[in-house]
Design a protein around this nucleic acid. Structure first.
Lengths: 241, 241
DNA sequence: CAATGTGAAGTACTTCACAGCC
DNA sequence: GGCTGTGAAGTACTTCACATTG
């Protein structure tokens, strides 16, 4: 029942996509240290996953390794980024020029990875017209026309929670297709718009729950060298996010 | 084989913990709108999950609902937060007083939810002694003694990637048990320290991959009202992170 | 012969379906 | 009657184990 077992070329798990970003992060750090070749197991160790996981993740996109040798670091970085579509510039807009918004506008790595913020918006009349990192703050009413004119597909929301929905609605009207939402609020958007939630609180809650639950001894008396994971169910370095 | 089926009270999936943070977020917004009772299905809809998922998640911690009625919003919020251990203050320290660090120090909701930053550190000599939101910036060498003196268990890292490891090592030496790492770098810490990674790039990569892959028509010609999800494998509102 | 790529086995999480309760 | 709480069924993801290849 519910047939069509593999109707599309291949179904790629969301979990795989998320890990690929981490692989790139670690590979970039290896490249900085002039490591030119790495095999799946040491790479996996640095990423906090199993070697077989990396091999399987990569297999969804092609064969990038050399048997008996490993992966060429630079080649693998460009293979992954081009597979994901992040190998070129992505113009963006940002709504909510508060502390966090400014931090994102000024974020060096963000720009360096091709995420270029082209226009910024706020609903506070005292902020309109201000310049942040060379960009003028426009009123949120201008979102639709400006997004349409620029033809931008991605937006970042860094408003307080109560203003996130309105920002999202304006953005959707302007034709935005993807939203990175830092506001601690769920938003409703038309079906074809993707939303990614960056939620500090989720991470904090997770941290605290693990802290208070885990009866991992605080003082590692015994040789805490090699009992890394596999203790019971803690997996400290797991990606999972 | 690999016996001991349920050796601990009950194994709670990590996935459940993450969703609970979202439930609280949505419940708090309902409370602001003076909604006093809600049943699992509408709550689930607002959170982007199935009703049965919420019921099962909550069941790990107890029975919080009234059959035939639903859940009392305020009661459920306090039940969840106390189950997670986030119903009281958590003192913290922060390393890396850049744009993002300052944004976190000034983050209202963060403080309002009991996450109180008690000391801040940076390695830039020009920043030492500055005051940010009433807190003096201390040199990173001071991390160990200050963390020990304050007895703080949680830290936030908002340094550039290349300085994250050093910060983490100092923090671990000082006896920190949990780290929220915003730096785009993996860090190695002793076994008993939990690390949560807040990774914008992962979210951006995910967004862009979904954007470029999904052949979801950009212009919803047909009645895009009710073909919400179940189209094929997109699930726009899913928590999953 | 070391390390990749991959079906097959195992595990973890999600959804279903319905008994039990208000 | 409506909605919770929960075993049982289903799905998705991870790990194993090994044939394959440079």
């Amino acid at each position: 029942m519910t047939d069509t077992p593999q109707p599309k070329r291949k179904h790629i798990p969301q979990a795989t996509i998320k890990r690929l970003a981490t692989y790139v992060q670690v590979l970039e750090s290896l490249a900085r240290d002039n490591v030119s070749v790495i095999s799946s197991n040491p790479l996996a160790e640095a990423c906090g996953v199993q070697g077989s996981q990396i091999r399987k993740d990569l297999a969804y996109f092609g064969e990038f390794g050399i048997r008996g040798v490993g992966y060429q670091v630079n080649h693998l970085i460009s293979s992954i980024t081009s597979s994901l579509g992040v190998d070129h510039e992505w113009p963006m807009v940002l709504v909510g020029v508060g502390n966090l918004g400014k931090a994102m506008i000024n974020h060096i790595g963000f720009h360096a990875h091709g995420f270029h913020i082209k226009a910024i918006f706020d609903c506070d009349p005292f902020k309109i017209g201000d310049k942040v990192h060379g960009l003028e703050v426009f009123p949120t009413q201008e979102i639709k026309p400006i997004v349409e004119k620029l033809g931008v597909e991605i937006a970042v929301i860094t408003t307080p929670p109560e203003r996130a929905q309105r920002a999202a609605s304006y953005l959707a009207e302007g034709g935005i297709k993807g939203i990175l939402n830092f506001a601690p609020a769920r938003i409703k958007v038309p079906d074809h718009v993707h939303v990614e939630y960056v939620d500090f609180f989720r991470h904090m809650y997770n941290l605290i729950f693990n802290l208070t639950q885990d009866p991992k001894e605080a003082k590692p008396e015994r040789d805490a060298m090699d009992i890394k994971k596999h203790l019971f169910d803690s997996d400290p370095g797991q990606i999972r996010d």
